[in-house]
Design a protein around this nucleic acid. Sequence first.
DNA 1: CGAAGTGAGTTCTGTTCCAGAACCCAGCCG
DNA 2: CGGCTGGGTTCTGGAACAGAACTCACTTCG
Lengths: 148, 148
Amino acid sequence: MASPASDATTLERTLQLVGDRWSILIIRAALRGLRRFDEYQADLGIARPILTNRLRRLVDGGVMAKEQYQEHPPRYEYRLTPAGVALSPALVALIRWGEHHLADGDADIVLVHGPCGTELEQGFWCRHCATTFQPTAIRAAARDRTAP
Amino acid sequence: MASPASDATTLERTLQLVGDRWSILIIRAALRGLRRFDEYQADLGIARPILTNRLRRLVDGGVMAKEQYQEHPPRYEYRLTPAGVALSPALVALIRWGEHHLADGDADIVLVHGPCGTELEQGFWCRHCATTFQPTAIRAAARDRTAP
DNA sequence: CGAAGTGAGTTCTGTTCCAGAACCCAGCCG
DNA sequence: CGGCTGGGTTCTGGAACAGAACTCACTTCG
C-alpha cells in the first residue's frame, strides 16, 4: 500500500467525521433500522448531549439526514443518506475483523450472505484483470482526469 | 444488515482498540512501511505521549508487535502482526469512502490494482453462490459450531 | 576526551472531550 | 389542570488529549 502523503488528508477528514467511539455505532444502529433520537439513546446508552453532537456532525458531513416526520409536535428522524449507506463496507470490515481477531469465547457472530447463509468474504476486485487480490497489490494513484 | 444486539460488544471492543483519531492513521503508516517511533511521530505529527500510549494499546491488542532490532542501544520497531494487516480491508473501505464522498476538488487519489492500475472495487463475495452482492443482503448469524 | 546527536520515551501544563444527571419546552392526552 | 413524550440544552466533574520540555542510554564526530 505505497501511497503519497497527500491522501492522508482525506483519511484524516474521514476520521474526524466517523473516527470516534460513537459515530460508527450510531451508523450501525441506523443500518439496523433505528431512526429517532430516543431510540439511538436507549439502544446505545450514549449520553444525550453527545448524541446531539454526533448526529449534528453526521448530518453536516452528509452521512445522515434529519427529516421532520410529523408537524404539530415537530418530531424528527435521522436516517442514513446514500453516502452513509456507502460506509457499510467499512462497518462490515470492522465487525468481521473483531469477530475473527478479538473473539474470546462468546459473541461468535459471523456475517453471512442472506439468501444462502454462507459466511461472506470481503475482497478486492480488479474489473480489468477479472481477479481478486491481496492488500499488498494495492497502490494509490492520482485520479485519471483525461476520461471523466 | 439485521443483527442481534450481542455482536455490538465485539464492534465496541474493536472500536476501543482502533476507534480513535490516531490508531487508524498509525496502522496506515505501518502499512506504508514505517517502523520506528520517531518515524511515526514525524510522519503523523502526533504528540509523543499519545503515540506511546497508542502503540502500547495496539501491541496489547495484538495489532502490532514491538521488536528489539538492536541491542546495545536497545532500539525497537513496531510492525503490524498478521491481525494488523487483516485490518486493511477496513482501512481501504474508509479511504475509498473519503475519496468518493468527501473529495472537494483536490486530493483526488484512488486506490488501484498495482499490476494494471485499474481502480479497485471492494465487494462482498459468497463462495457458495459464487457471486458478489450488496450490503443489504448481509445477515448476522451465530457461528456454526457443529463443524469446527 | 568532550560535544553533539539519536531513539525512545516520560513529565508537566493547559485545553478539549466525555459521562451523568438534571432541567427545559412544546404539544398532546385524559 | 397535570402528567407524559420526544427532542433536546445546561451544568457539573473527570478522562483524554495536545504541545513543549526534559530524561537517559548510548554512539559518533571533531
